[in-house]
């Protein structure tokens, strides 16, 4: 198998504070990988560092065969990776269509065709193309955020808690949408608070604690792991 994304011994943080003390993760092509761990473990910081929003102090990040360590986000987007932040992940004063166009900002051509493909994946958005994104409900916003990130047909998708703040029903439809996206060939690296559910549909998982790798392995076996269950699945 070829690696789609590989972060090796990544050290990063804010100002004086070092949050990540050498974290390594790898995502194979077409794989779904979950990162779980307690609050403050540095999960979001890891995604931001991988995406070039926070400088990498040591270690390296590779996307396929490219070294993207500390690259600018716009060049990382061009290289084939998209990222959906946890909150404020749509442009509220832009229409749904304009939000999707912004997702394809670095694309030179084929915008129209790609828009139709993405609208087909998110039929709920199709009838509301001209509506302002600010009027959408929490679940619809999350769908739009996913749709925006898919506009470039990325090889790797980074998701920061896609289920945060959603109703249980909405959580299910977001998760099933993420599974669909993954089945279509996009590798997904996601952070989730709903750890049990995330593990149930992921291939592999990493447990991150205080900025260090604690555990990694097959997602299904991790659900049954006693320590994981006790610490992070609330048993």
């Amino acid at each position: 198998m070829t690696l789609a994304l590989e972060a090796t011994d990544v050290v990063a943080g804010y100002g004086e504070a070092e949050i990540l003390h050498g974290v390594s993760i790898a995502v194979e092509e077409g794989e779904m990988v979950a990162i779980i761990g307690p609050n403050g473990a540095g999960k979001s910081t890891l995604l931001k560092t991988i995406f070039g929003l926070i400088p990498t102090r040591a270690g390296s990040v590779r996307l396929g065969t490219n070294d993207i360590t500390s690259d600018r986000p716009d060049s990382i987007v061009k290289a084939g990776m998209s990222y959906v932040p946890q909150v404020e992940n749509v442009f509220p004063s832009l229409s749904i269509n304009e939000n999707l166009e912004m997702g394809a900002y670095v694309r030179q051509d084929g915008l129209r065709e790609r828009l139709e493909v993405v609208y087909d994946m998110f039929p709920d958005l199709t009838s509301r193309r001209g509506d302002g994104a600010g009027k959408l409900s929490g679940g619809q916003r999350q769908m739009l955020a996913l749709a925006r990130a898919l506009m470039l047909d990325p090889q790797v998708l980074l998701l920061d808690e896609p289920s945060a703040g959603l109703s249980p029903k909405m959580v299910d439809s977001i998760f099933s949408k993420i599974v669909d996206i993954n089945l279509a060939g996009t590798a997904v690296l996601l952070i989730e608070q709903n750890a049990r559910e995330a593990l149930s549909f992921s291939h592999r998982a990493y447990v991150l604690v205080t900025g260090e790798n604690r555990m990694e392995g097959d997602a299904k076996t991790m659900i049954d792991n006693e320590e994981v269950g006790r610490l992070y699945l609330g048993e």
Binding site: P73, D74, Y83, P85, E88, V90, F91, Y105, V106
Partner: peptide, 10 residues
């Protein structure tokens, strides 16, 4: 609207 999201959109 959102400079951070603009940045991550490319």
């Amino acid at each position: 609207d959102n400079p951070d999201l603009a940045l991550v959109s490319g």
